[in-house]
């Protein structure tokens, strides 16, 4: 019993020391505006009006592309770990649940789409939109008016990879067009960014739902 306690005390001491050192160093950080200036200067060539979207989809689009790749890979990891058989429908009597779903899901889809759309000019974007779509999907999965099919079918695999596929196609197009890998022709930047964001939002939404479902293992009860 005394050994684990000693290691715990040591860990606490080390963590405390790290915390103190971090705080002292963080409080010395100089004030500067980081990359705000270069971003502002390049905004007119970015194709969109909102700085964060410009950074996410254009200046640092490669980060976002790889992040969509992380999501897709995580879905594949969940598939490789968990069960893939169909999930039976949940039998819930009464009109309340279905009525709520029937009203909430379209609202969520509309909100998600709107968030993606306005992302080009104000706060919003593929991730926020995708998260709302994902929430709607999780709701549907939890309520399950119909049984869910066996995963991963081709259609599903395609849609969850759609964001990466569209982004990669656009990026390779940029490379061939002489704007660098992950680059856009300035005239087409807006259209391409919106297309990428729409595809990404759909993939993110579906990916989150699949991750939510992904952990089922042998012996789990579907209805608890």
């Amino acid at each position: 019993m005394s050994r684990p306690r000693l290691s715990h005390v040591l860990t606490s001491l080390l963590a405390g020391a790290l915390g103190v050192a971090l705080v002292l160093i963080l409080l010395e950080l100089p004030a500067h505006s980081g990359l705000a200036e270069p971003v502002t200067e390049a905004m007119d060539r970015s194709g969109v009006g909102h700085e964060v979207t410009a950074v996410l989809l254009n200046f640092r689009g490669y980060d976002t592309f790889l992040e969509l790749a992380v999501l897709l890979l995580a879905v594949w990891v969940a598939w490789s770990l968990g069960r893939q058989d169909p999930v039976p429908a949940r039998s819930v009597r009464g009109p309340v649940l279905r009525g709520t779903l029937r009203h909430l899901v379209p609202v969520a889809v509309l909100t998600g789409g709107y968030l993606v759309w306005v992302g080009a000019s104000t706060t919003g974007g593929a991730f926020q939109g995708g998260a709302v779509l994902g929430a709607a999907g999780v709701m549907l999965v939890l309520a399950r008016p119909r049984s869910l099919p066996r995963v991963p079918r081709l259609g599903l695999r395609f849609v969850v990879a759609l964001g990466v596929l569209v982004f990669l196609a656009s990026g390779v197009g940029g490379l061939l067009g002489g704007h660098g890998f992950m680059g856009y022709h300035p005239d087409w930047a807006y259209a391409l960014i919106v297309a990428v964001e729409l595809a990404a939002a759909v993939s993110i939404g579906l990916g989150l739902v699949l991750l939510f479902l992904g952990g089922r293992v042998q012996g789990d009860d579907d209805d608890h």
Binding site: L35, P38, V39, N58, F59, H179, G183, Y184
Partner: peptide, 15 residues
Amino acid sequence: IHALGGWEAPLGIAL
């Protein structure tokens, strides 16, 4: 050094 998207560092990401 390949400036991704044609955005040179420090704004963009370089390969």
